[in-house]
Structure formats: C-alpha cells, structure tokens
Amino acid sequence: MTQPPSPKSTQLTEAQVRHVAKLSRLTVTDDQVQRFAKQLTDVLEHVATLNKLDVGAIEPMAHALDMTNVLRDDEPQPGLAVEAVLANAPGRSDPFFKVPKVLDDGSGA
C-alpha cells in the first residue's frame, strides 16, 4: 500500500512564512514573521502525528451529514436593497463600491 507523500520537514522557514502571508493577503512585520515561524512550526509538529495513521483507503470526509447538492426551486426572490448593500462600504460612488486605482493610467509613469 502506498502512503501519500508527507512534507519533508515541519520546520517553517521565514521565507515560507512570508510566502504564506502573501498568499493569505496579510502584511506581516519582521517581528511577526519570526514569531509565526515558531508558533506555526509548533502546530505543524503536533499535527505530524497524523502521519502515524495509514489512511490510504479512507474516503475523505468534508461534511458531517450525508447530503450533497441541496437545490431549491429556481424562483426569483427579493435581494438586499442597494442602499443596504452599500451602507457598510468603506468607500462608495453610488451605486458602486469605490476602491483605489487597480491599473495604472497607461502613461508609462
């Protein structure tokens, strides 16, 4: 029976922490990188105990109840009013959310 590949090391490097922070869309300080590297390594070392189990033939379980694709009748229902949707927006230009410029202005600056 083949075992699924397990990570070579549970030790998280600071470079890995920075990479995961980037994937997570979190700006982290150098201080936090050091702290998170140690704390997350502690947790990963603990969860490595799962590697003791032979789970090759076990079906993954994502959900506690045996239900899939719960559908309802495709009938239009009233949604939230635009004002309700925009009420908490940190920036708005009605009827839109306003965000900083995403693309540059093409001037090449």
């Binding site: 699924p4 590949p5 397990s6 990570p7 998280l12 890995q16 922490v17 995961v20 922070a21 994937l23 997570s24 979190l26 982290v28 936090q32 998170f36 704390q39 997350l40 947790v43 969860v47 799962l50 590697n51 189990l53 789970v55 076990i58 079906e59 993954p60 379980m61 994502a62």
Partner: peptide, 27 residues
Amino acid sequence: QRRIMLGTYALSSGYYDAYYVRALKVR
C-alpha cells in the same frame, strides 16, 4: 492571522494532500 496562515498553508500547492486531505480522512 495565524489561523488564516495555517489554513492557507494546509491548502497550498504541494501540501494539500499531505495536510488537508489527510485530515479529512482522519475525520
């Protein structure tokens, strides 16, 4: 932040099967 990073790591390319899927099997 720690939990978001832990979860992102467990779901990230190269670690998904070793961490997340394995955990679902033990579940």
